[in-house]
Structures are given as structure tokens and as C-alpha cells.
């Protein structure tokens, strides 16, 4: 079953790069959705089925940490894994993100392998689309 991924970043260039890496990753990706800030991301999440969110932290209107907090308040959204993709690399920020419920953290600048490795860990697939975990363990219902 294909995964739908939501990319959240106020930089259109960064969204384009992450999109390109994910497309070329070899994983079983369905739709690649985008949002320019946390508020827009919430709208997308309410309208579309999303299996994974990759989000920047520093964005206008609603930042990435606020986005996670909002998602965790919602019964439908709280189980969606969220990975931070950000320049903010302090231990404190990483800890803050994890305490809010982030599933992973990628620091910019990053290599394509950093994104792929995180996708593999979160989605439980290798690049050939083979699952290596029991679907009953949790995650999206598909």
C-alpha cells in the first residue's frame, strides 16, 4: 500500500528538494502533498489521508512545534508520525520536539540518504517496498 507524505516548509525550494528525494527514494509513495506553514498543513491533514509528515520548525503563522501540538490534540491526526526537517539542531530543540511527539529529526543541511534512512525507519520498509514489521503494530490503517 502506498504512503501519502505531507511536506511542510515555508521554503518552496526546500519542499521541492524533499519531494524530489522522496520520489527518487524507491519507497512505495502515493501522494506527495505540500504546505507552506503549520496552519496550511492542518487544512491539508483535515482534507487528505496522510501517513507521514515532514516539517520544518521555523515557519510563519504556525511553526513546526505548534503543528505537532495541534496534531496530538486531534483523535484522527495524533497517530500520524511527524519528522522534523530543520536548521535548528540544538539538543534542547531536539528534546523539545521528541517530547511533543516527533518521530524523528533531520538537521539541515542534509544528504538524500538522511531522508531515505528516516523514511525507512518510520515506514518500516526497505527501498524495494518490502515491509519488515507487522502491520498490527500500529501506524496508519491501510
Amino acid at each position: 500500500m502506498a504512503f501519502n507524505v505531507l511536506i511542510v516548509d515555508d521554503s518552496s525550494s526546500m519542499r521541492a528538494i524533499v519531494r524530489k528525494i522522496i520520489k527518487a527514494s524507491g519507497f512505495n509513495i502515493g501522494e506527495l502533498l505540500e504546505a507552506a506553514d503549520g496552519k496550511e498543513a492542518i487544512k491539508v491533514l483535515m482534507d487528505e489521508w496522510v501517513d507521514l509528515v515532514l516539517t520544518d520548525i521555523n515557519m510563519p503563522k504556525m511553526n513546526g512545534l505548534e503543528l505537532i501540538s495541534e496534531m496530538k490534540k486531534d483523535e484522527m491526526l495524533k497517530s500520524i508520525p511527524v519528522v522534523m526537517v530543520t536548521t535548528e539542531g540544538s539538543e534542547k530543540r531536539i528534546q523539545e520536539s521528541m517530547e511533543l511527539g516527533a518521530s524523528g529529526y533531520i538537521k539541515k543541511p542534509f544528504l538524500p540518504e538522511d531522508i531515505k534512512r528516516t523514511l525507512s525507519a518510520i515506514m518500516g520498509e526497505d527501498e524495494d517496498g518490502q515491509r519488515d514489521y507487522d502491520e498490527d503494530d500500529g501506524g496508519s490503517d491501510f
Partner: peptide, 25 residues
């Protein structure tokens, strides 16, 4: 803009372990 965002953020992350600094847009 994103180049400078990454340079500034990366620089701060190299010494600001406590996350005391914040970047604007």
C-alpha cells in the same frame, strides 16, 4: 534565502547546545 537560513541555523547549532538562540525568517 534558504542558503542563509541553513548557514545561520547550522552555525548556531554548532555552539548553541541549549537552543537559546532563535532565528527569524
Amino acid at each position: 534565502k534558504e542558503s542563509l537560513n541553513m548557514i545561520g541555523g547550522h552555525m548556531l547549532s554548532l555552539f548553541d547546545k541549549e537552543g537559546a538562540f532563535k532565528l527569524d525568517i
